[in-house]
Measured scan of single mutants.
Amino acid sequence: KTVHVNGVQYDFDNPEQAERFAKEMAKKAGLQIQFHGDQIKIE
């Protein structure tokens, strides 16, 4: 899974790890999470 945070890309082999990371980042920055198939976007 790939997580995009403000244009920066983070790759994870483990989907659960990717989602946990995305939730942490979104919570910290007060941003929205969008799921697009294999990609998670935080903007």
Results as ranks from 00 to 15, higher is better:
Lys1Ser: 11
Lys1Val: 14
Lys1Asp: 02
Lys1Ala: 10
Lys1Trp: 15
Lys1Pro: 05
Thr2Ile: 08
Thr2Pro: 02
Thr2Phe: 04
Thr2Asp: 01
Thr2Ser: 09
Thr2Arg: 07
Thr2Tyr: 06
Val3Lys: 01
Val3Asn: 02
Val3Ala: 03
Val3Met: 03
His4Arg: 09
His4Thr: 12
His4Met: 14
His4Asp: 04
His4Ser: 09
His4Ala: 05
Val5Arg: 02
Val5Phe: 14
Val5Lys: 02
Val5Glu: 00
Val5Asn: 01
Asn6Glu: 04
Asn6Gly: 08
Asn6Ala: 07
Asn6Leu: 12
Asn6Lys: 05
Gly7Cys: 11
Gly7Pro: 01
Gly7Lys: 02
Gly7Asp: 01
Val8Lys: 10
Val8His: 05
Val8Tyr: 07
Val8Ala: 04
Val8Pro: 00
Gln9Asp: 03
Gln9Met: 09
Gln9Glu: 04
Gln9Arg: 14
Tyr10Ala: 00
Asp11Trp: 15
Asp11Asn: 13
Asp11His: 14
Asp11Cys: 15
Phe12Cys: 10
Phe12Asp: 00
Phe12Ser: 00
Asp13Ser: 08
Asp13His: 02
Asp13Cys: 15
Asn14Glu: 06
Asn14Cys: 15
Asn14Gly: 03
Asn14Phe: 04
Asn14His: 04
Asn14Ile: 03
Asn14Thr: 14
Asn14Tyr: 04
Pro15Asp: 09
Pro15Gly: 06
Pro15Trp: 14
Pro15Lys: 11
Pro15Met: 10
Glu16Ile: 08
Glu16Asp: 08
Glu16Arg: 07
Glu16Gly: 05
Glu16Val: 07
Glu16Met: 08
Gln17Lys: 04
Gln17Leu: 09
Gln17Pro: 00
Ala18Pro: 00
Ala18Glu: 00
Ala18Arg: 04
Ala18Leu: 04
Ala18Asn: 00
Glu19Pro: 00
Glu19Gly: 03
Glu19Ala: 12
Glu19Lys: 11
Glu19His: 12
Glu19Phe: 15
Arg20Val: 08
Arg20Glu: 11
Arg20Leu: 12
Arg20Gln: 12
Arg20Cys: 15
Phe21Met: 01
Phe21Gln: 00
Phe21Ala: 01
Phe21Thr: 00
Ala22Gly: 00
Ala22Val: 08
Ala22Asp: 00
Lys23Gly: 03
Glu24Val: 05
Glu24Gln: 08
Glu24Pro: 00
Glu24Leu: 13
Glu24Ile: 10
Met25Lys: 01
Met25Val: 09
Met25Ser: 02
Met25Gln: 07
Met25Gly: 00
Ala26Phe: 07
Ala26Gln: 03
Ala26Pro: 00
Ala26Tyr: 06
Lys27Arg: 11
Lys27Cys: 15
Lys27Gln: 12
Lys27Gly: 10
Lys27Ile: 12
Lys27Asn: 12
Lys28Pro: 04
Lys28Thr: 09
Lys28His: 10
Lys28Gly: 04
Lys28Phe: 12
Lys28Gln: 12
Ala29Val: 09
Ala29Phe: 15
Gly30Met: 07
Gly30Asp: 07
Gly30Ser: 06
Gly30Thr: 04
Gly30Val: 03
Gly30Leu: 05
Gly30His: 08
Gly30Ala: 08
Leu31Cys: 15
Leu31Val: 11
Gln32Phe: 06
Gln32Pro: 05
Gln32Glu: 10
Gln32Thr: 12
Ile33Lys: 02
Ile33Cys: 14
Ile33Met: 06
Ile33Tyr: 06
Ile33Ser: 04
Gln34Pro: 03
Gln34Tyr: 13
Gln34His: 11
Gln34Arg: 10
Gln34Ala: 09
Gln34Lys: 11
Gln34Trp: 12
Phe35Thr: 07
Phe35Pro: 04
Phe35His: 08
His36Pro: 06
His36Val: 13
His36Tyr: 12
His36Ser: 10
His36Trp: 14
His36Lys: 10
His36Thr: 10
Gly37Phe: 07
Gly37Pro: 07
Gly37Tyr: 07
Asp38Trp: 10
Asp38Gly: 07
Asp38Gln: 09
Asp38Cys: 14
Asp38Arg: 02
Gln39Leu: 12
Gln39Gly: 10
Gln39Lys: 09
Gln39Asn: 09
Ile40Ala: 04
Ile40Arg: 01
Ile40Gly: 05
Ile40Cys: 14
Ile40Tyr: 06
Lys41Cys: 15
Lys41Ile: 15
Lys41Asp: 08
Lys41Glu: 08
Ile42Gln: 04
Ile42Cys: 14
Ile42Val: 11
Ile42Ser: 06
Ile42Asp: 06
Ile42Arg: 02
Ile42Met: 08
Ile42Lys: 04
Ile42Glu: 05
Glu43Ala: 08
Glu43Met: 11
Glu43Asp: 09
Glu43His: 08
Glu43Arg: 06
Glu43Cys: 15
